[in-house]
Nucleic acid binder design. Sequence first.
RNA 1: GCGGGUGUGGUGAAAUUGGUAGACACGCUAGACUUAGGAUCUAGUGCCGUGAGGCUUGGGGGUUCGAGUCCCUCCACCCGCACCA
Length: 924
Amino acid sequence: MEYGFRDIEKKWQAAWKEQGAYKVSNESSKPKYYVLDMFPYPSGAGLHVGHPLGYISSDIYSRYKRLKGFNVLHPMGYDSFGLPAEQYAIEHGIPPAVSTDQNIDNFRGQLDKIGFCYDWDREVRTSNPDYYKWTQWIFLQLFDSWFDRSSQKAKRINELENIFSQQGNSGHICPGDRKLQFTSNEWNGFDGTRKAEILMHYRLAFCGVGEVNWCEALGTVLANDEVINGVSERGGHPVVKKKLRQWYLRITEYAERLLSGLQTVDFSDSMKDMQTNWIGKSFGAEMDFALESTNPKAAGKNLKVYTTRPDTIFGVDFMVVAPEHELVSIITTEEQSDAVHQYLEYVNSRSERERMAEKKITGVFSGAYCKNPFNDSMIPVWISEYVLAGYGTGAIMAVPCGDERDFKFAHHFNIPVTNIIGEHFNGIEANSTKDALLENSGFLSGLKMSDAIGVAIQKIEDLGIGKRQTNYKMRDAAFSRQRYWGEPFPIVWKGDVAETLPESDLPVVLPPLSDLKPGPDAQGPLANLPEWANFGGGIREVNTMPGYAGSSWYFLRYMDPKNEGEFCSRQASDYWGQVDIYIGGTEHAVGHLLYSRMWTKALFDLGYIGFDEPYKRLVNQGKIGGDSRLVYRIRGTKQFVSGGLKDQYETDEIHVDVSLVDGFDLNMESFKQWKPDFADATFITEDGVYKCGSRLEKMSKRYFNVVNPDDIVEKYGADTFRMYEMFLGPVEQDKPWDTKGIEGVHRFIKKFWRLFYDAEKGSVVSTQPADAAAWKAFYKMMKKVEDDTAKFSFNTAVSGFMIGVNDLNDLNCHSLELLEKFLIILTPYAPHICEELWSLTGHSGSILDASYPEVEEKYLVETSKEYPLAINGKTRTTLQLDMNATQEDVERIVMAEPVVLKWLEGKQPKKIIFVKNKMINVVG
RNA sequence: GCGGGUGUGGUGAAAUUGGUAGACACGCUAGACUUAGGAUCUAGUGCCGUGAGGCUUGGGGGUUCGAGUCCCUCCACCCGCACCA
């Protein structure tokens, strides 16, 4: 009987579907386990062989856990809101809802062929109103919350109102406006609009003013990705900054917890580092410098700077404030007024991109000075774009002997440099050491810089001119988009006050809209629908939520996907708890992962769930690269020259569809038919063969190197495909796709089949017990495979299976007793063939519900071992030794070995090293 | 520039965490069976050398009886961040 994988796979996929074999219940006596894939954005291009890599590994792991007796949640869904669908609608006139559904159907078809064990009854789609109703609901919870810094926790906004009416805001610095201070009396006297305005500065979801990329020609706001070198990707039109009302999430309030939470989760170092760097925590001090300026407005004002190096306070030679700093107009002297204006104009003309791309040293003196409180020296205040308004206080104290940028600035503007680190400063470049002993530094002189930091801060605090301060690079997350295809906000504007809609009005359904052109005044397309936007005596928010809104909490919805009364019942989230293992790409390191971690923390604080980190363990699968094929056209002709000869001509390189190439050999006839341009191509071959060039690059339509999993499954079957993807290499690693290698895995599966069925003889399965040698081979394999599976080392597990089958084949073992155990351990990897053979060998239930066998150690006991015998560290031979051999035994045996005598040339060895179970080394 | 990672045969990759480098495959070579084979099976295959043997994990150095693995240093490539005071 032949291994007819096409029929087998079709048959069992249908059967599993019919039996509901992958349905998961929230009630079970088994321990739970939650395996989650990052859900895909259903793009029009469909899946290529790189996409299922992570899905296959999670599928194997889920199936393994199930066999080990766990109740495994392994769901799948779609992140179906987003820009490409909207773009597609604009270009092709097909509504996003329609194209998205088509794409999902297409994805689903492709996924189903691979035989995944998803419980599709739990599918979620972020663009489905049943789902985004709860995205909107969570937004309302965030809107209705503030972050209490003293307890590091989100609380309800009415609690804050109570505090304000009793004690003002003195105990709770306003995160949106640090200078804001009011007493309880003042608060109680504010009108509703003012109160709303103040509360907005505290809310976790809040509205503010932000800059967007505005393209006048396209009349629309662009994402950063759509802006290339200051012009729009589409059309190359100029893009400028435009201030716009925007929604934000106050993720900065969670900076500390996002940081400390990393210690409780199992993510890779690089992933943790990326998040840590993104959060960008730094310690230092804020301090005030008294300003002196001939500008009368500056009288009595202080300049507040932030520094991580207060130890260098005696090395301050100038101050720099950001051009956008509010003090600029106040401190500028009359003499410098023209120069400052000119400079500000120049800065305005420069886009952020330009500022980042070309780092010119620019700046202007304001005419004002600051007084150094420690030595009364007068420090000039400069204005320069290298200081960023949004970080710290927007002003720095510049210490050119210790900071490279400060040094360059001083050098460029001929500002004298004070040296406080003696010989550590060479006058040519700054030295940012913390190890030098301070000189010229008043009360800090003689101290090591790293120690002086604390001393300086203490002094600054004692003098009341500053305080210690922790800063974060991370900014609050922009949460609105001027787009159509996203979640509408449950917000109605009454004048300048944002009113929330009650829960009973949810979901706010995205209205159908055929023309997705932008609205007036940089608003989204929904602004073109007044009959929708005018609502309840106000105007709806016409922006929509960004792509990451729906993906920030989807892992919770899977736990309770049909719940109409709650986003997820507490009972369900208590049962499933954290995601035990989360699999996906690294591209979401700082976006999605940080946002969903923040949402989880907020939901935890508000008491809706019982854990505050969503993902216990994260595995990042690598990308599979495409192996492109290239042909070389001699410039200006229709003649193509083979790769080995191309250097003799001047050629242009052209990507050729990989399906037209066998290995490196081009099928020249197919090539001519491929595109009309090439119909009359001629070839310069090497012995009749046209050799293509190759290059590893991203798998992409435009390189014609995309390999579709459907084709592979059609040709080799899903089981082979699954195992081959795993066999390619470690899951975490990037690697190239090479279809040729799949033959080896396919041969393995056929060989496995032949342990049960012979082409002529039919079934060869025997009821005889297996002998000890067969059991030994089997359990050795099983041990390896189970260890490897548990640690996500699937490539070596596949190799383990291959060795096992080769061994059993050599031992001529066909014992059912052994083979049925083999079927179970192979099931996670190749479920179809295993289910088929399980059924053919007379089992009634599904193999999915079998239980994983135990290793019988007694078969693995060794009585002797082959030791490598090295002489002076070089292995010369091997020795078969009893497991109980002692040092004396070994020395005796070794000294009788002719090889040893030969290499020692008659001399006595200095030492004989014998490491039990490892090796022997004779030192001569 | 900073942070993280990678570097092993013609190719994808293994290596029990300091103990026989190259498992398992692909490819290649030879052979068997065949009308045929892109099916199957057998043998070989890191490099140099007829051989004994020598060399070999990006380069150089070190620790060790012993290093792909640990330390120092340099090089190349990939990813992330990038004027963060």
